[in-house]
């Protein structure tokens, strides 16, 4: 088994009000594309209920930073009671969504993702020693990149949600 170190555990962001869910999804997707992450949309669940739509998305994109280290970001998005809303901005009608949104972010640093150092117990032991004493600086550096990436994404999402604080029409 490769080693997965939990770098950020359950960073939360919740929001209630008007927002553009489709735009938010596209923004997150394009951010991962720009940053060189490989896409993995593990789940995309949508339930149409009388009180509105319930949406659950789980994204698990990864980025192979070297042959040995891999950055993984996990996003769980839950949107509850999502209804369509129409607002007017500068005379133009815009379709948005209204409801409750919860996002949970986790970040992992995976080492030896190609499972090269686990065929024999001695390899496993050597890997542990190398990880602990020789690759410590590598771990620190990649953890920092991962934290920077996640905070950047988090702040972009915050900006995106703030962008749509308009007054509801009618």
């Amino acid at each position: 088994m490769s080693e997965k170190k939990l770098v950020i555990d359950q960073m939360k962001l919740d929001y209630e009000g008007l927002f553009d869910l489709h735009g938010l999804y596209r923004m997150i997707d394009s951010w991962f594309y720009e940053k060189g992450y490989d896409k993995w949309e593990l789940k995309n669940i949508e339930q149409v209920l009388p009180g509105g739509k319930d949406i659950e998305i789980e994204l698990l994109p990864w980025r192979k930073i070297t042959d040995y280290f891999k950055l993984i970001i996990r996003i769980r998005l839950k949107a509850v009671n999502i209804k369509d809303a129409e607002i007017e901005k500068e005379g133009v009608k815009i379709k948005l969504n209204k409801g409750y949104l919860l996002m949970i972010f986790d970040a992992y640093l995976e080492s030896d993702y190609e499972h090269k150092w686990e065929h024999r117990p001695i390899f496993y032991f050597i890997r542990t020693l190398f990880d602990k004493y020789l690759f410590k600086s590598h771990f620190d550096r990649y953890e920092k990149i991962l934290i920077d990436d996640l905070y950047d994404l988090h702040s972009r999402i915050q900006k995106f949600l703030n962008l749509y604080r308009y007054e509801q029409h009618g």
């Binding site: 869910l21 489709h22 999804y25 596209r26 997707d29 594309y33 995309n44 739509k53 949406i55």
Partner: peptide
């Protein structure tokens, strides 16, 4: 299905 989270940047 006209899902809210549609689109593919890739």
């Amino acid at each position: 299905l006209d899902m809210e989270a549609k689109g593919n940047e890739y």
